[in-house]
Computed example of a mutant assay.
Amino acid sequence: MPLFSIGTVQKLTGLSARQIRYYEEHGLIQPARTPGNQRQFSFADVERLMQIRQLLDEGHNIASVKRNLLDKDRRPRSSRPLSAKDVPDSEVYQWLERELMERRQTGEFQGDLSRFYRHR
């Protein structure tokens, strides 16, 4: 589900808007678009951008990153049963809320996702 603007994704990934657009131009990510044609990124898009950044930091070039991500996409997904190590969505959302509220007080994420969470 697309939730994040490009500005928020920049803060989450440490990438510049230009880098993110470049990766989109090369087909490494395909963010959703709003009716106004603005990019909207999902958690999966953010995770993929982090993978791209990691591969580039390891010394891979764009062609190698594309191959690596294509190979990963082609691998069958594990159908293993859930274990106690898997974190349920509710815990992920609680963690995200705590992080956003802590950062909201420092002003780092002011105006971003933190506005969806109210102090309780």
Rank of each mutant, 00 (worst) to 15 (best):
P2R: 01
P2C: 02
F4Y: 15
I6M: 09
G7S: 01
T8C: 07
Q10L: 13
K11W: 05
K11V: 06
L15R: 08
R18F: 13
Q19N: 03
Q19G: 05
I20P: 10
I20Y: 06
I20F: 05
I20E: 03
Y23A: 12
Y23Q: 10
E24Y: 14
G27D: 11
L28D: 14
L28P: 08
I29V: 15
I29M: 02
I29S: 02
Q30N: 07
P31G: 05
A32L: 09
A32S: 15
R33E: 01
R33P: 02
R33S: 00
R33I: 03
T34F: 14
G36F: 07
G36S: 12
G36V: 03
G36H: 12
N37H: 10
N37P: 03
Q40A: 10
S42I: 04
A44N: 04
D45T: 04
V46R: 05
R48A: 05
R48Q: 14
M50C: 14
Q51E: 15
I52Y: 14
I52T: 08
R53P: 10
R53G: 12
L55G: 06
L56E: 04
D57H: 06
D57S: 04
G59H: 11
G59T: 01
G59I: 08
H60V: 09
H60F: 15
N61A: 11
N61H: 15
I62W: 13
I62E: 11
I62M: 12
V65Y: 06
K66Q: 14
R67T: 10
N68E: 06
N68Q: 09
N68C: 08
L69N: 01
L69S: 02
K72L: 15
D73T: 04
D73R: 07
R74P: 06
P76G: 00
R77W: 11
R77P: 15
S78I: 07
R80N: 09
R80I: 07
S83N: 14
A84L: 14
K85M: 15
K85H: 15
D86T: 04
V87E: 06
V87F: 03
P88F: 12
P88L: 07
S90D: 01
E91N: 07
V92Q: 13
V92I: 15
V92K: 12
Y93D: 00
W95C: 00
W95R: 10
E97I: 07
R98T: 09
E99H: 08
L100I: 02
L100R: 00
E102C: 10
R104V: 11
T106W: 04
G107S: 02
E108N: 01
E108D: 11
Q110M: 09
G111L: 02
D112Y: 09
D112L: 15
S114N: 12
S114Y: 11
S114D: 15
S114R: 13
R115T: 00
F116H: 03
F116G: 01
F116L: 14
Y117P: 04
R118I: 14
R118A: 13
R120P: 11
